[in-house]
C-alpha cells in the first residue's frame, strides 16, 4: 500500500477515534451541561443526610447550580456538615432554605435550594442555617402507623 493512502487511513482512524472520545464526553457524559467554571463554597448542617453522596447535584428550581463536594460529621454538634461548590454566576439570599430531596421514587438524592426573600446574599464560605433533613422512609411509615393506631379506637363509634 502506498504511503499517501496509508497516511489517509491512519488519519481517518485517529480522527474517528478522537470523535468517539468527544462523543462520549459531550453526548454521553455531562461535560457540556454541568460545566461549572468558577465556583464558591457554601456549607450547610443537616441532622440527617439520608443517602446524599459527594458529587450529588445542588439544584434550585430544578436547575443544577452546583455540586456537593464533601460530607463530614461534626462530633461537637452531632450534625452532618455538607460542603458544596456553587456556580459563581448565581447568588442566593441569606435565608435560602436547603432541603435534601429525592428525584423520583428511587432516584438519587440532591440538595434543593428554596430561595427566601432576604436582600442580603450568601457570601462565599457562608453556612446555610435553614436546612431540612432527608426524609427517612421508615420514620414516615412509623409516623403514619402511629397516627392510624391513635385513630383506630374511634372507628367503631362512627
Amino acid at each position: 500500500m502506498n504511503r499517501t493512502v496509508l497516511d489517509l487511513w491512519v488519519g481517518v482512524f485517529v480522527a474517528v477515534g478522537v470523535a468517539a472520545v468527544l462523543f462520549l464526553a459531550l453526548k454521553v457524559g455531562n461535560l457540556a451541561s454541568a460545566n461549572i467554571g468558577e465556583t464558591y463554597r457554601l456549607q450547610a448542617n443537616f441532622d440527617n443526610i439520608g443517602g446524599l453522596k459527594p458529587r450529588a447535584p445542588v439544584k434550585s428550581s430544578g436547575v443544577v447550580v452546583g455540586r456537593v463536594t464533601e460530607i463530614t460529621f461534626d462530633p461537637n454538634l452531632y450534625v452532618a456538615v455538607v460542603k458544596m461548590d456553587v456556580d459563581k454566576r448565581y447568588s442566593f439570599p441569606r435565608d435560602t432554605f436547603a432541603t435534601i430531596l429525592t428525584s423520583g421514587l428511587l432516584g438519587e438524592q440532591y440538595i434543593g435550594f428554596e430561595v427566601g426573600g432576604d436582600t442580603e446574599m450568601l457570601k462565599p464560605d457562608a453556612t446555610i442555617t435553614k436546612t431540612q433533613s432527608a426524609v427517612v422512609l421508615e420514620k414516615l411509615i412509623s409516623q403514619f402507623m402511629f397516627n392510624k393506631a391513635a385513630e383506630s379506637p374511634k372507628a367503631p363509634e362512627q
Binding site: G17, V18, A20, V28
Partner: peptide, 9 residues
Amino acid sequence: PLLAALFST
C-alpha cells in the same frame, strides 16, 4: 484507547 472509545460509542 481509540479502539476502546469507538467500541463504547
